[in-house]
Amino acid sequence: MTTPTAPTTATVAPPRARFAKAYAAHLRSESRLLSREGAALVFGAVLPLAAIVVMSAIPAAREPLADFGGLPVVRTYQPTILLFATSVLGLTVMPAILGGYRQAGILRRLRTTPASPATLLAALFTVVAAVGLLVGALIVAIPALAGAGLPTHLGWFALAGLLSLLAFLALGTVLAAVVGSPQVAAGLGNVVAALMWFSAGLWLPRQLFPDWLVTLTDLVPGGAAAQAMLDATVGVQPSWQPFVVLAAWTVAGALVAVRTFRWE
Protein backbone atom coordinates (compact mmCIF):
# COMPACT_ATOMS: atom_id res chain seq x y z
CA MET A 1 0.00 0.00 0.00
CA THR A 2 1.19 3.46 -0.69
CA THR A 3 1.52 6.12 1.91
CA PRO A 4 -1.99 7.31 2.72
CA THR A 5 -2.64 10.75 1.45
CA ALA A 6 -5.25 13.09 2.75
CA PRO A 7 -7.63 14.22 0.07
CA THR A 8 -7.73 17.96 0.04
CA THR A 9 -11.07 19.68 -0.24
CA ALA A 10 -10.24 20.47 -3.86
CA THR A 11 -10.26 16.79 -4.86
CA VAL A 12 -13.60 16.12 -3.14
CA ALA A 13 -16.29 15.89 -5.80
CA PRO A 14 -19.30 18.20 -5.48
CA PRO A 15 -22.18 16.63 -3.54
CA ARG A 16 -24.34 15.95 -6.59
CA ALA A 17 -21.63 14.09 -8.54
CA ARG A 18 -20.72 12.21 -5.37
CA PHE A 19 -24.34 11.19 -4.81
CA ALA A 20 -24.72 10.08 -8.45
CA LYS A 21 -21.63 7.87 -8.23
CA ALA A 22 -22.67 6.24 -4.94
CA TYR A 23 -26.28 5.89 -6.12
CA ALA A 24 -25.21 4.13 -9.33
CA ALA A 25 -23.03 1.73 -7.31
CA HIS A 26 -25.88 0.98 -4.88
CA LEU A 27 -28.24 0.48 -7.81
CA ARG A 28 -25.98 -2.17 -9.33
CA SER A 29 -25.47 -3.80 -5.96
CA GLU A 30 -29.16 -3.83 -4.95
CA SER A 31 -30.25 -5.21 -8.35
CA ARG A 32 -27.76 -8.06 -7.98
CA LEU A 33 -28.79 -8.78 -4.40
CA LEU A 34 -32.52 -8.74 -5.18
CA SER A 35 -31.97 -11.10 -8.11
CA ARG A 36 -30.38 -13.53 -5.59
CA GLU A 37 -33.36 -13.30 -3.21
CA GLY A 38 -35.52 -15.90 -4.90
CA ALA A 39 -38.09 -16.16 -2.12
CA ALA A 40 -38.82 -12.43 -2.11
CA LEU A 41 -39.52 -12.43 -5.82
CA VAL A 42 -41.65 -15.60 -5.95
CA PHE A 43 -44.67 -13.90 -4.37
CA GLY A 44 -44.05 -10.42 -5.68
CA ALA A 45 -43.29 -11.29 -9.30
CA VAL A 46 -43.25 -14.96 -10.29
CA LEU A 47 -46.64 -15.95 -8.87
CA PRO A 48 -48.65 -13.01 -10.31
CA LEU A 49 -46.96 -13.43 -13.69
CA ALA A 50 -47.65 -17.19 -13.67
CA ALA A 51 -51.31 -16.46 -12.92
CA ILE A 52 -51.63 -13.99 -15.79
CA VAL A 53 -49.77 -16.28 -18.22
CA VAL A 54 -51.96 -19.29 -17.32
CA MET A 55 -55.19 -17.29 -17.66
CA SER A 56 -54.05 -15.79 -20.95
CA ALA A 57 -53.29 -19.29 -22.24
CA ILE A 58 -56.84 -20.52 -21.62
CA PRO A 59 -58.92 -19.65 -24.73
CA ALA A 60 -62.17 -19.37 -22.75
CA ALA A 61 -60.61 -16.77 -20.42
CA ARG A 62 -59.75 -14.58 -23.42
CA GLU A 63 -63.25 -14.58 -24.93
CA PRO A 64 -65.61 -11.70 -24.08
CA LEU A 65 -68.37 -12.92 -21.77
CA ALA A 66 -71.79 -11.33 -21.45
CA ASP A 67 -71.78 -12.19 -17.69
CA PHE A 68 -68.70 -9.97 -17.25
CA GLY A 69 -70.12 -6.99 -19.08
CA GLY A 70 -68.69 -8.12 -22.38
CA LEU A 71 -65.14 -8.45 -20.97
CA PRO A 72 -62.85 -11.50 -21.05
CA VAL A 73 -62.37 -13.13 -17.62
CA VAL A 74 -58.61 -12.50 -17.68
CA ARG A 75 -59.15 -8.74 -17.89
CA THR A 76 -61.49 -8.66 -14.91
CA TYR A 77 -58.69 -10.32 -12.91
CA GLN A 78 -55.96 -7.90 -14.04
CA PRO A 79 -56.57 -5.34 -11.24
CA THR A 80 -56.54 -8.02 -8.52
CA ILE A 81 -53.38 -9.69 -9.80
CA LEU A 82 -51.62 -6.35 -10.22
CA LEU A 83 -52.58 -5.27 -6.69
CA PHE A 84 -51.37 -8.61 -5.36
CA ALA A 85 -47.94 -7.99 -6.91
CA THR A 86 -47.55 -4.34 -5.84
CA SER A 87 -48.77 -5.02 -2.29
CA VAL A 88 -46.37 -7.93 -1.77
CA LEU A 89 -43.42 -5.92 -3.14
CA GLY A 90 -44.25 -2.82 -1.11
CA LEU A 91 -45.61 -4.26 2.12
CA THR A 92 -43.49 -7.39 2.67
CA VAL A 93 -40.40 -7.37 0.42
CA MET A 94 -39.51 -3.74 1.23
CA PRO A 95 -39.75 -3.95 5.06
CA ALA A 96 -37.95 -7.31 5.09
CA ILE A 97 -34.94 -5.96 3.16
CA LEU A 98 -34.85 -2.55 4.83
CA GLY A 99 -35.33 -3.92 8.35
CA GLY A 100 -32.71 -6.58 7.65
CA TYR A 101 -30.20 -3.93 6.58
CA ARG A 102 -30.79 -1.95 9.73
CA GLN A 103 -30.61 -5.02 11.98
CA ALA A 104 -27.32 -6.17 10.43
CA GLY A 105 -25.78 -2.73 10.95
CA ILE A 106 -25.45 -2.14 7.22
CA LEU A 107 -27.02 1.33 7.45
CA ARG A 108 -24.90 2.16 10.51
CA ARG A 109 -21.77 1.12 8.65
CA LEU A 110 -22.69 3.37 5.71
CA ARG A 111 -22.95 6.34 8.06
CA THR A 112 -19.17 6.17 8.50
CA THR A 113 -18.58 6.67 4.77
CA PRO A 114 -18.89 9.91 2.79
CA ALA A 115 -22.05 8.39 1.21
CA SER A 116 -25.19 8.72 3.31
CA PRO A 117 -27.27 5.59 3.98
CA ALA A 118 -30.12 7.57 2.36
CA THR A 119 -28.39 6.78 -0.95
CA LEU A 120 -28.89 3.06 -0.31
CA LEU A 121 -32.55 3.70 0.51
CA ALA A 122 -33.03 5.62 -2.73
CA ALA A 123 -31.42 2.81 -4.73
CA LEU A 124 -33.48 0.14 -2.96
CA PHE A 125 -36.69 2.08 -3.72
CA THR A 126 -35.68 2.38 -7.34
CA VAL A 127 -34.95 -1.32 -7.72
CA VAL A 128 -38.13 -2.55 -5.99
CA ALA A 129 -40.24 0.00 -7.84
CA ALA A 130 -38.63 -1.04 -11.15
CA VAL A 131 -39.56 -4.67 -10.47
CA GLY A 132 -43.12 -3.53 -9.66
CA LEU A 133 -43.35 -1.50 -12.88
CA LEU A 134 -42.01 -4.36 -14.97
CA VAL A 135 -44.42 -6.88 -13.41
CA GLY A 136 -47.31 -4.42 -13.82
CA ALA A 137 -46.44 -3.79 -17.46
CA LEU A 138 -46.34 -7.54 -18.13
CA ILE A 139 -49.67 -8.06 -16.35
CA VAL A 140 -51.17 -5.55 -18.80
CA ALA A 141 -49.22 -6.67 -21.88
CA ILE A 142 -49.46 -10.47 -21.69
CA PRO A 143 -53.29 -10.72 -22.02
CA ALA A 144 -53.18 -8.07 -24.77
CA LEU A 145 -50.60 -10.08 -26.71
CA ALA A 146 -52.75 -13.19 -26.22
CA GLY A 147 -55.62 -11.37 -27.88
CA ALA A 148 -57.74 -10.38 -24.85
CA GLY A 149 -57.22 -6.65 -25.43
CA LEU A 150 -55.91 -3.78 -23.28
CA PRO A 151 -57.76 -2.13 -20.38
CA THR A 152 -60.31 0.22 -21.92
CA HIS A 153 -58.89 3.35 -20.26
CA LEU A 154 -55.23 2.28 -20.30
CA GLY A 155 -53.92 5.60 -18.95
CA TRP A 156 -56.18 5.66 -15.88
CA PHE A 157 -55.49 1.98 -15.27
CA ALA A 158 -51.73 2.56 -15.39
CA LEU A 159 -51.95 5.63 -13.14
CA ALA A 160 -53.95 3.71 -10.52
CA GLY A 161 -51.48 0.81 -10.68
CA LEU A 162 -48.48 3.13 -10.34
CA LEU A 163 -50.02 5.01 -7.41
CA SER A 164 -50.84 1.73 -5.65
CA LEU A 165 -47.18 0.70 -5.99
CA LEU A 166 -45.98 4.01 -4.49
CA ALA A 167 -48.54 3.88 -1.66
CA PHE A 168 -47.55 0.32 -0.73
CA LEU A 169 -43.83 1.17 -0.87
CA ALA A 170 -44.41 4.14 1.45
CA LEU A 171 -46.48 2.04 3.87
CA GLY A 172 -43.90 -0.76 3.79
CA THR A 173 -41.21 1.77 4.75
CA VAL A 174 -43.39 2.97 7.63
CA LEU A 175 -43.60 -0.64 8.83
CA ALA A 176 -39.80 -0.96 8.65
CA ALA A 177 -39.47 2.33 10.53
CA VAL A 178 -41.81 1.62 13.44
CA VAL A 179 -41.22 -2.13 13.87
CA GLY A 180 -37.73 -3.08 15.01
CA SER A 181 -37.55 -6.68 13.85
CA PRO A 182 -37.55 -7.24 10.08
CA GLN A 183 -39.35 -10.57 10.49
CA VAL A 184 -42.16 -8.97 12.50
CA ALA A 185 -42.37 -6.02 10.07
CA ALA A 186 -42.67 -8.36 7.08
CA GLY A 187 -45.24 -10.46 8.96
CA LEU A 188 -47.33 -7.40 9.72
CA GLY A 189 -46.86 -6.41 6.09
CA ASN A 190 -48.48 -9.71 5.10
CA VAL A 191 -51.46 -8.97 7.34
CA VAL A 192 -51.84 -5.46 5.89
CA ALA A 193 -51.47 -6.88 2.37
CA ALA A 194 -54.23 -9.43 3.08
CA LEU A 195 -56.51 -6.57 4.19
CA MET A 196 -55.66 -4.78 0.95
CA TRP A 197 -56.59 -7.87 -1.08
CA PHE A 198 -59.88 -8.09 0.79
CA SER A 199 -60.56 -4.39 0.10
CA ALA A 200 -59.73 -4.97 -3.55
CA GLY A 201 -62.30 -7.78 -3.71
CA LEU A 202 -59.94 -10.74 -4.04
CA TRP A 203 -62.06 -13.03 -1.89
CA LEU A 204 -65.45 -11.41 -2.16
CA PRO A 205 -66.18 -9.29 -5.25
CA ARG A 206 -66.62 -5.63 -4.38
CA GLN A 207 -70.02 -5.74 -6.13
CA LEU A 208 -71.24 -7.94 -3.25
CA PHE A 209 -69.95 -5.59 -0.50
CA PRO A 210 -72.67 -3.81 1.57
CA ASP A 211 -72.63 -0.05 1.06
CA TRP A 212 -70.86 0.75 4.33
CA LEU A 213 -68.03 -1.67 3.42
CA VAL A 214 -67.66 -0.06 0.00
CA THR A 215 -67.39 3.39 1.60
CA LEU A 216 -64.83 2.09 4.10
CA THR A 217 -62.68 0.13 1.64
CA ASP A 218 -62.74 3.04 -0.83
CA LEU A 219 -60.58 4.86 1.72
CA VAL A 220 -57.78 2.26 1.87
CA PRO A 221 -55.21 2.01 -0.94
CA GLY A 222 -56.24 -1.54 -1.96
CA GLY A 223 -59.92 -0.65 -2.36
CA ALA A 224 -59.28 2.72 -4.00
CA ALA A 225 -56.83 1.30 -6.54
CA ALA A 226 -59.10 -1.67 -7.32
CA GLN A 227 -62.10 0.60 -7.89
CA ALA A 228 -60.17 2.94 -10.19
CA MET A 229 -58.71 0.03 -12.17
CA LEU A 230 -62.08 -1.77 -12.46
CA ASP A 231 -63.67 1.43 -13.74
CA ALA A 232 -60.85 1.85 -16.24
CA THR A 233 -61.26 -1.79 -17.29
CA VAL A 234 -65.00 -1.63 -17.98
CA GLY A 235 -64.65 1.74 -19.68
CA VAL A 236 -66.20 3.96 -17.01
CA GLN A 237 -64.31 7.21 -16.46
CA PRO A 238 -62.86 6.73 -12.91
CA SER A 239 -63.77 9.44 -10.39
CA TRP A 240 -60.99 11.57 -8.84
CA GLN A 241 -61.60 10.15 -5.38
CA PRO A 242 -59.51 6.92 -5.58
CA PHE A 243 -56.54 8.84 -6.98
CA VAL A 244 -56.70 11.36 -4.14
CA VAL A 245 -56.93 8.51 -1.62
CA LEU A 246 -53.87 6.78 -3.13
CA ALA A 247 -51.87 10.00 -3.29
CA ALA A 248 -52.81 10.89 0.29
CA TRP A 249 -51.64 7.49 1.60
CA THR A 250 -48.39 7.82 -0.36
CA VAL A 251 -47.61 11.31 0.95
CA ALA A 252 -48.68 10.53 4.53
CA GLY A 253 -46.71 7.27 4.50
CA ALA A 254 -43.60 8.96 3.14
CA LEU A 255 -43.80 11.73 5.76
CA VAL A 256 -44.26 9.30 8.64
CA ALA A 257 -41.45 7.08 7.32
CA VAL A 258 -39.01 9.99 6.99
CA ARG A 259 -39.85 11.22 10.50
CA THR A 260 -39.70 7.86 12.27
CA PHE A 261 -37.01 5.95 10.39
CA ARG A 262 -33.77 5.43 12.32
CA TRP A 263 -30.50 4.26 10.82
CA GLU A 264 -29.76 1.98 13.78
Binding site: A6, P7, G105, I106, R108, T112, P114
Partner: peptide, 18 residues
Protein backbone atom coordinates in the same frame (compact mmCIF):
# COMPACT_ATOMS: atom_id res chain seq x y z
CA UNK B 1 -18.83 15.64 9.01
CA UNK B 2 -18.39 15.12 5.27
CA UNK B 3 -14.73 16.14 5.05
CA UNK B 4 -14.08 13.97 8.10
CA UNK B 5 -15.73 10.88 6.52
CA UNK B 6 -13.28 11.19 3.66
CA UNK B 7 -10.19 10.85 5.85
CA UNK B 8 -11.47 8.71 8.68
CA UNK B 9 -12.02 4.97 8.21
CA UNK B 10 -14.22 3.37 10.84
CA UNK B 11 -14.69 -0.29 11.57
CA UNK B 12 -17.67 -0.64 13.88
CA UNK B 13 -18.82 -3.40 16.17
CA UNK B 14 -21.56 -5.69 14.91
CA UNK B 15 -21.74 -4.33 11.42
CA UNK B 16 -22.26 -6.90 8.74
CA UNK B 17 -22.73 -6.85 5.00
CA UNK B 18 -25.65 -8.46 3.15
Amino acid sequence: PLALREMLGMQLQQCRLP
